[in-house]
Design a protein around this nucleic acid. Structure first.
Lengths: 135, 135
DNA sequence: GAAATCCCTACTAATCCGATAGGGTAATTA
DNA sequence: TAATTACCCTATCGGATTAGTAGGGATTTC
């Protein structure tokens, strides 16, 4: 299951991508328009900012804004930041690899074989979609 | 993340597919060979049986066995039985569809757009893999 | 009829998720 | 420079889920 964190994060990014110019948008506005708990959204936008996807401006007229063009924001990045590993098992993860403690032989493992294909197909989708493609 | 339930279930199916003839195999044997908690595995094999993927035989010399040829066991079926919906969000699920309670317009929703592609690519993998392909 | 084995229910410890609460800090504007 | 606005950060919590445990049937075969 996709976490609400990721779902809300994606919606917020989409919302910001639609904004004219690059005007900062307040958390409260996004939360209201997208039906998201404001405090929860706050923490999500914060992690997006920490990971270089958003910029923020404090004080009156402040808010969050996209730091790059929507065309340059890959879903691979977004998903890794919000959802974590793309692979369904650590033993087929590119960025979060971990050996299984059971499973003596990775090459022979049926789970490994299957999940490798699933990972590749998901990666394929994420690599071929930027934020701009979702508008 | 893939649940251990699914992981163990897949391993058990693979194990049974490798067995000569269609001799019943005891839970204890599979559990030991594949490093799985026996009681936990028991409940998994039970759901596989209830869903028509395995047969069982009681009494001495009993155990579990494949009820169909490995070539005829699709991963789509296995995944749905063990892991549940293939889609990451209910609003793009074929067999477990549910409308989002937020989200006024599904067609405009960026999450929907992206997850639809992910579902299709995963389905593609599962439809093109039978148990026989994983041996 | 005894042994082997499947079958079923209930419980639990640990973890994660989504959300809430509350206050601190920095920047803008009057 | 003071008030306001809005971001920033920490802590906490209820509920759901997961992975596993325990214990005891019920059935079949030898």
């Amino acid at each position: 299951m996709l976490s609400k964190k990721t779902k809300y994060g994606l919606k917020a990014l989409t919302y910001l991508a639609k904004v004219e110019g690059r005007e900062p948008v307040q958390i409260a506005e996004i939360a209201k328009q997208e039906n998201i708990s404001q405090k929860f959204l706050e923490s999500i936008l914060l992690t997006l900012r920490r990971n270089g996807l958003l910029g923020s401006k404090k004080g009156k007229g402040g808010g969050y804004y996209l730091i790059k063009d929507p065309e340059d924001i890959l879903m691979t990045t977004v998903m890794r930041v919000l959802e974590g590993p793309i692979a369904m098992v650590p033993c087929v993860s590119l960025n979060f690899y971990e050996k299984c403690d059971d499973c003596p032989d990775e090459v022979e493992c049926s789970v490994h074989k299957l999940m490798l294909q699933v990972r590749d197909s998901a990666l394929d989708v994420y690599r071929n979609n930027t934020l701009a493609d979702l508008l």
